[in-house]
Design a protein around this nucleic acid. Structure first.
Lengths: 249, 249
DNA sequence: AGCGAAGGACGGAAGACCAAACCTTTTGCG
DNA sequence: CGCAAAAGGTTTGGTCTTCCGTCCTTCGCT
């Protein structure tokens, strides 16, 4: 028969439990999560315009949800213009042309921009280190290609951001770690929400590109130290830009 | 009138969408997430034995769920012996004495051990870098205390692991980033599941402690480079142990 | 013409979650 | 002593989400 408050309460020290322990348990519905997952993939260009989604009957199985739930999500995405469907024999659901970003920065997102950047730092740094250990030259060649695309996109931020995402997600893929790819797409989605509405002068993008090149070079040499130093510097760059423009900077 | 498959499908290059895009949408119920969140905090010792949870009526508000849902979770935790409740004026819900780990390694967890380690690397590395930038000397003093506790726990792995977790979570708290604390507790919970059932000779723990000391010293000097190098080495240590014992190593 | 593969629509069953009461136990205090 | 307060425990009813199965519609291909 246990007696409630015993001496150990004090004996355990004054350590107060991290408030994360009692933090809000996030309980998004399957519908919402699906809209987020597919919507982010579209926003990030991971699902390029014109490409076709798997048939609903297959896709709902892969996502682990019922078809009706998937259809709710697809209906939402089609109403917001991200997707459209055609019927008939060779019909299907297709990715629409990119939407004008629309999203005004979302006030409660802006309040948490520092947290987003912190999370990004962790993911990108981990990815960089693991990529430097595991990427093979085929991976690196593909990434170099993307880097070349970036060089030609200094004047068009939408195109630049697109390729930038390809580069960062590609680096995550080179780690062969599905969780890291997932976290990278997540965090890039959040970053896009933050930065797509601020000015990006070509000089800044050019210097970003130089950092990209240095990161890739270091990764190719399996030099984790240099790779992570360069990546850190790269990330601090955009962080400084944000700090200058957003509250609490 | 949109026409479905157009030339861009091919023009966009051979990039096949990362399979993470169509990955299972994880839809845990609020009940399950609550059990996980509180259960992990208990397992990790973040809620020490004998300590008291907030009253149900408060706690459910903080967690953002209904009281009936919270009670489901508490009932589950009490049936598994992690928690017990007393009624009456000064009653409450209290953390029970630590359970014998019980958990047999869980076969599908073992299969994903590499992913867990990868995620841990990312979080720990990010935390280390940010802690090295942001920790003040009060943070460091507290962490040094924990490190001292670790020195005396070489023979009792349960106690050792407990303090180890305090150290790593404490480092995360020093970043002042709630998301990182949350991710750290998450990942430490997963690690505990992996490592609590394997042998930990005192020599290994002693060398871990040496690494802890070097990490803390570097953090105190705001030396992010050295701190992350030492942390990486520390993490690789347990990773090698796992690689020797688990499938796919 | 018709088959087959795709999206589209409905209707009910099951379950998760919530909200708001109400009950029971204990204890401090007037 | 007895009551009020503070806690956990119980019940009920309703809403919303999700699932499953079935059927319909469209339309290119053979």
């Amino acid at each position: 028969m246990p007696k409630p408050p015993d001496a150990r309460t004090a004996a355990a020290g004054t350590l107060t439990p991290p408030e994360a322990v009692f933090a809000r348990v996030r309980s998004q519905t399957a519908f919402e999560e699906t809209v987020d997952q597919l919507g982010t993939a579209i926003k990030l260009g991971l699902l390029p315009p014109g490409s076709q989604l798997p048939p609903e009957r297959d896709l709902c199985a892969r996502l682990g949800i019922a078809r009706s739930t998937l259809r709710q999500a697809l209906t939402a995405l089609s109403q917001s213009g991200h997707v459209f469907a055609t019927r008939g024999r060779h019909g299907g659901t297709f990715i629409a042309d990119p939407q004008p970003p629309a999203h005004p920065p979302s006030p409660e997102m802006l309040a948490r921009w520092r947290e987003v950047c912190d999370r990004r730092l962790a993911i990108e740094l981990g990815v960089t280190v693991l990529a430097a250990e595991r990427a093979d030259s085929a991976d690196l060649d593909a990434l170099d290609d993307v880097a070349l695309t970036l060089e030609d996109a200094l004047e068009d931020f939408a195109a630049y951001r697109q390729a930038d995402i390809r580069l960062h997600v590609g680096l995550a893929e080179a780690t062969r770690s599905d969780v890291l790819v997932r976290e990278m797409t997540d965090v890039q989605g959040a970053m896009t929400d933050l930065i797509s509405h601020i000015a990006h002068p070509p000089e800044i993008l050019a210097s970003s590109n130089a950092q990209h090149r240095r990161v890739l070079a270091a990764v190719r040499e399996h030099d984790t130290i240099v790779a992570s130093r360069e990546m850190t510097e790269h990330l601090k760059g955009t962080e400084h830009v944000l700090a200058g423009l957003l509250p609490g900077g």
